[in-house]
């Protein structure tokens, strides 16, 4: 899938958690959403984008969420 599409979708998820007062909770919420609803290949692709391209295009909170909590196995 085109990475741009995944970036857009991941940022949308991030937007929902934007107003969470607890940052850790927000990051866990973002990652949990991706873990529960995104197919493995999509998760791997966005994780690779974070690792290899510094997550360019992704909001900072989403990058942190993916780096810290995304399951790719």
């Amino acid at each position: 899938m085109q990475t741009e599409q995944l970036i857009k979708m991941a940022n949308q998820v991030g937007d929902f958690f934007e107003s969470y007062p607890d940052q850790v909770q927000a990051q866990q919420g973002i990652a949990e959403h991706l873990n529960r609803f995104w197919a493995l290949a999509m998760r791997r692709q966005i994780a690779a984008h974070v690792k290899e391209a510094n997550g360019v295009g992704l909001h900072a909170k989403v990058i942190s969420a993916i780096s810290s909590y995304l399951e790719v196995e």
Partner: peptide, 10 residues
């Protein structure tokens, strides 16, 4: 989790 319709189409 599997693919959703829009994912399948993409």
């Amino acid at each position: 989790p599997g693919l959703r319709i829009p994912n399948m189409l993409d």
